[in-house]
């Protein structure tokens, strides 16, 4: 990329390429605006029998999170507070405190009573099994 820099005609294409690479570098992991980042970032999966949510919650315990499941809605609410350790001066602070609420709307109802959640290594995993009528079924075809 940088060898093109000295080639005057191509210098703008080098800039373009540079910008694209920078965009890709930041865009892949953090698509949203850096000033108002989504928290927590999450993945939502549909296995045939359940919905699974994985959410990043570094430094949080189960006490900091409230999880509510309605029929087809999973709501994660909570607060992450950060206190600098006492007696230390601060050189750099990139981590931020958050007060958040995020709702995931599912396309099929889930069995609220059978839902489970765990928080481990800073990742929250919610498993919400689908209700019996929402589960995908294979229908046997009869031949006469």
């Amino acid at each position: 990329m940088w060898t093109r820099w000295y080639d005057f005609d191509r210098s703008f294409s080098a800039l373009d390429e540079f910008q694209r690479r920078m965009d890709r570098m930041f865009g892949e992991f953090q698509r949203e605006s850096p000033r108002f980042p989504t928290f927590p970032r999450a993945n939502l999966y549909d296995t045939d029998t359940a919905y699974v949510i994985q959410a990043e919650m570094p430094g949080m315990t189960e006490k900091d999170v409230d999880l509510t499941i309605h029929q087809d809605e999973v709501c994660i609410e909570g607060e992450r507070t950060l206190a600098p350790p006492t007696g230390y001066s601060v050189h750099r602070q990139e981590r931020a405190p958050y007060k958040f609420s995020r709702t995931f709307t599912l396309s099929e109802p889930v069995d609220v009573d059978a839902a489970t959640a765990s928080l481990k290594d800073g990742i929250l995993v919610v498993v919400a099994p689908k209700t019996a009528q929402a589960k995908a079924r294979t229908i046997e075809i009869k031949s006469n």
Binding site: P84, H91, Q93, R95, D121, G122
Partner: peptide
């Protein structure tokens, strides 16, 4: 993301790595 702190005894680096084992 990191926070960096210092006191008389030590430097302390706090790094956020969700999912790290």
């Amino acid at each position: 993301l990191v926070d960096i702190f210092e006191n008389d005894e030590e430097l302390l680096i706090v790094a956020e790595m969700p999912g790290a084992k």
